[in-house]
Amino acid sequence: MLTVRRAQRRFGRRVIFTDLDLDVAAGARVFLGGSNGSGKTTLLRCLSGTLALSTGQATVGGHPVGSLPARRLTGVCLAPEQGLYEKLSARENVALVARLRLPRRAVAPAVAGLEEELDLTGYATVPVERCSAGMRARVSIARALVGGPALLLLDEPSRSLDDPSRLLLWQALDRRPELTCVIASHHADDRRRCQSALTLAAAA
């Protein structure tokens, strides 16, 4: 599902990661670990196509990351408490991505299903700017799951979540055994729920 070959990303002279190879089979969950500043978010951005690799290549389902088919296959949750339209409600934020990914008739059922699954219903119509960090994180996760992506990239999804919310997240992932996940996290419990791990070393 996800293949990375000899990937390197640097900013100026600062190398974030280099010579990175990764093969993730469909349905596998990869835990992405490493200390603060080790490049976990940078790698996820590269896999989502919003940041280009300096060298090397990465593909999703055989398509180069960043291409339209690869973006169609990929759900992204980077910086889960950010990247939301603050004035829009949780429902409208999820619905926007649904309208960009799904046929019109499929939008409302998809949004309603995710609201229920991640327990957004209590604040679905509240502007996101009035939501707590944990509520916002759940909105971001719901948004990343819209349209049934084949690959899900999650950047520390549980850092703002309480225990019941983290359980909701993992239940949502368990309901999708075909979903391939790359999950950046510092939680040991998250590590335990993944089949394999990739640990990035901090840049020198």
């Binding site: 990175l20 990764l22 089979a25 596998a28 089949q195 394999s196 990739l198 020198a204």
Partner: peptide, 11 residues
């Protein structure tokens, strides 16, 4: 920077 490689295996 450390070269890092991992392979996640699943059927």
């Amino acid at each position: 920077m450390t070269p890092t490689a991992a392979t996640a295996t699943r059927a």
